[in-house]
Design a protein around this nucleic acid. Structure first.
Length: 701
DNA sequence: TATGCGTAGT
């Protein structure tokens, strides 16, 4: 009896010890102290299901999804909470198929399980599957489960479906109504949103704030502030929403007034104000606000550090980072990015290597930094070491190799990629275009369309460029009709690309028509038309478009003058060309760029004024590039000035030592002038310097 | 432990 009693007491003590440890574990897990939670978990002599569930949620919260799964698989016993937590974790990380497979195997599914599964599909845009799960739910379906479905419909643009379900469900609550409303406000349909809002019998702060955020999102700040004034007792989220609107619109004065008038300011309010200053590069105000801010959190630190880093104030950013008392991956990533933008690779590596935890964004930053610095091998090594590659990681490598002229490697990675997206296809297609492989670009566009991938403006821009270069008018016209069908035609960049393509194909009338019909003409549109006339030899028309552009109050930029000068050059308008060239600095206060000099060298050179052209090049404030020497060389060959031609060819081969055609040119020029030794020397350089033909590609996907 | 609103790093 006594022994049994003692055993009971011991068991009770042990149970209460487990209970206390579980409470501590839950506290650690919720306050983000994963390492401490793990230590406690490992040190516990006895654990129950609650212990395991707490550890599972902690791992899931930190994105350690595979560790969570391992723990789940090894649990001695599981209850509904364990199953639900695991399914929710998989769902949160987009692992839809894994979530479903666990859901199917789960014994005794409860309301929560069904809701998580519906929400999982809904958030992934799989509306039919979500609806199927909802329909299969046995007995009385719970309101949250309906709401998850309404939210799915609304956020995926199926507002009518959302409303239909709202009317059909047995017990809609405010969340149901707000979920539907969010579909309208978040897609900027404020007219319908307003109608729906008026229809709502009951409204809470979420409803009002959704409307407010809708006006902000639509960029209608006056409507937003008017609406804000109508809210009887705005809560901190209402204030922050309007504050954020002013900041994003650049109305920093209004923002600050509002911020000062706020009855209570939480960390989000401070962070939004801080971000407002940072975005407008008002760094002094930002730093002052940051100093004054009570309760700075990781977002505050990241905001200020990234602002300083972007502005190149790397020492100040580093000093701040050193003052941080806690670990923040985002802030370190921002500083790393700042270093990499300025080619300070060693400093970036020091941060990267010193990080004990490093997430996908951080790895991607380092990889893309290497790529930007031209260090492709280092990027590849990191890419291979990286544990959880996402689409950004793959796409960065593809784009890196493509831009580095290594299309075979780019394609190799592209082929190994299991879940390609639009960006992946865009990277290879634009890579082909940049490397002059226009047919391959269009071929891959065809392959892309054969899959279920959706082309975006970037895809079309690359393909149109390919058409322009191939003078493939009919393909261009097909792309034009695809653009109309896809709805991208109203984007100004698509219109601009079309103008260039039609013009380059010699269809200047069609180009002009697109231009005339365009709603949002910008400087690029004008430049495209001017350049179009220029490349069709219609110099006078190019100049008259230029005049029209000025009459419309559009200020010409450097690119405009590249078009105008080449128009003059093609049409032999020497005096006009010289006039425009001098006006670049005198009238328009622009800095002449190398392309302007190349046009002028071409203009003067074609007219036989080789010495004047050469003098112009010699007097350049900036370093002449290959285009400039190439233009001069062309003119020299036209007018048989061997001496100057040889000089230009030499400069060219200095600037592009790996381009074989430069040595061939130099060799031919020397041979023509009877300088056989030098001709031979130039030929030898091809092998010696390992000069290559432009990169080609064997085979395709 | 779910469903509707505000902030940071590629």
């Amino acid at each position: 009896m006594a022994a049994a009693g003692a055993a009971k007491v011991t068991a009770a003590a042990a149970a209460s010890a487990v209970f206390r440890s579980n409470q501590e574990l839950t506290r650690l897990a919720r306050s983000g102290q994963l390492a401490a939670a793990r230590r406690l978990f490992d040190s516990m002599p006895r654990r129950n299901t609650v212990t395991y569930n707490a550890m599972l949620s902690a791992l899931a919260r930190h994105g350690r999804i595979d560790e969570a799964r391992a723990l789940f698989d090894g649990m001695p016993s599981r209850n509904a909470v364990s199953w639900n937590a695991m399914i929710a974790a998989l769902s949160d990380h987009g692992r839809v198929a894994d979530a479903r497979s666990l859901f199917d195997r789960m014994p005794g599914r409860d309301d929560f399980s069904w809701t998580v599964m519906v929400s999982c599909y809904a958030r992934a845009g799989e509306l039919e599957l979500a609806r199927d799960v909802l329909d299969r739910m046995p007995g009385d379906k719970c309101t949250p489960c309906y709401n998850a479905m309404i939210s799915g419909y609304a956020k995926n643009g199926r507002f009518d479906h959302a409303v239909k379900l709202l009317r059909e469900m047995p017990a809609p609550d405010l969340v149901s109504w707000n979920s539907a409303l969010a579909g309208l406000t978040q897609s900027g349909e404020m007219v319908r949103a307003l109608q729906f809002f008026d229809e709502m019998v009951e409204k809470d702060m979420v409803s009002w704030n959704l409307m407010l955020e809708g006006f902000v999102r639509a960029g209608d700040l006056d409507a937003a502030s008017g609406f804000f004034a109508k809210i009887e007792s705005p809560n901190v989220i209402s204030w922050v929403t309007l504050l954020n609107g002013y900041c994003r619109a650049g109305r920093i004065g209004d923002a600050r007034d509002l911020f000062d008038r706020m009855p209570e300011r939480n960390a989000v309010a401070w962070n939004v104000m801080l971000d407002g200053y940072v975005r407008l590069s008002h760094l002094e105000e930002a730093c002052k606000l940051f100093d004054e801010m009570p309760g700075k959190n990781s977002i505050s630190w990241t905001t200020i550090i990234s602002g300083l880093a972007r502005a190149g104030k790397l020492q100040e950013a580093k000093d701040l980072l050193d003052k941080m008392s806690f670990n923040c991956v985002a802030a370190k990533t921002a500083l790393m990015h700042g270093y990499l933008q300025r080619n300070m690779v060693d400093d970036a590596i020091r941060i990267f290597d010193g990080m004990e935890v490093c997430d996908t964004v951080c790895w991607n930053t380092m990889i893309s930094g290497y790529v930007q610095c031209g260090m492709l091998e280092e990027a590849m090594l990191l890419f291979q070491r990286m544990p959880n590659k996402d689409a950004v990681s793959w796409n960065t490598m593809i784009a890196g190799y493509a831009q580095g002229g290594q299309m075979s490697k780019a394609i190799g990675i592209f082929r190994r990629m299991s879940r390609r997206n639009t960006v992946s296809w865009n990277s290879v297609i634009s890579g082909f275009v940049q490397n002059g492989l226009f047919v391959d670009a269009l071929h891959h566009f065809m392959l892309m369309r054969r899959g279920t991938y959706r082309a975006d403006w970037s895809t079309y821009a690359s393909c149109l460029r390919a058409c322009a270069n191939l003078v493939a008018f009919h393909v261009g016209r097909q792309l034009h009709s695809l653009l109309v069908r896809s709805g991208h035609i109203n984007d100004s960049f698509a219109g601009n690309a079309l103008i260039s393509t039609y013009a380059k194909c010699g269809r200047i009338l069609e180009a002009k028509q697109i231009f005339d019909e365009m709603v949002g003409k910008d400087i690029v549109s004008w430049n495209a038309l001017i350049d179009g006339y220029a490349s069709n030899g219609q110099g006078t028309e190019a100049i008259s478009v230029f005049r029209e552009m000025e009459a419309n109050g559009v200020r010409p930029d450097e690119v405009t003058f590249v078009g105008i000068l080449s128009a003059c050059s093609h049409a032999g308008l020497i005096d006009e060309g010289l006039g425009f060239f001098y006006s670049v600095t005198k009238e328009y206060s622009l800095k002449p760029i190398a392309e302007h000099y190349a046009c002028m060298a071409d203009l003067l050179g074609r007219a036989g004024k080789l010495n004047e052209a050469f003098e112009l090049v010699q007097g350049m404030q900036i370093q002449p590039n290959a285009g400039v020497w190439g233009a001069l060389l062309g003119a020299c060959q036209m007018h048989k000035n061997h001496e100057l031609a040889r000089l230009a060819a030499e400069k060219l081969s200095e600037l592009e030592p790996c381009k074989a055609s430069n040595y061939v040119l130099l060799s031919n020029i020397s041979a023509e002038a009877g300088k056989w030794d030098e001709a031979e020397k130039a030929r030898a350089s091809i092998k010696e310097k390992g000069a290559n033909k432009p990169p080609g590609l064997a085979g395709s996907t």
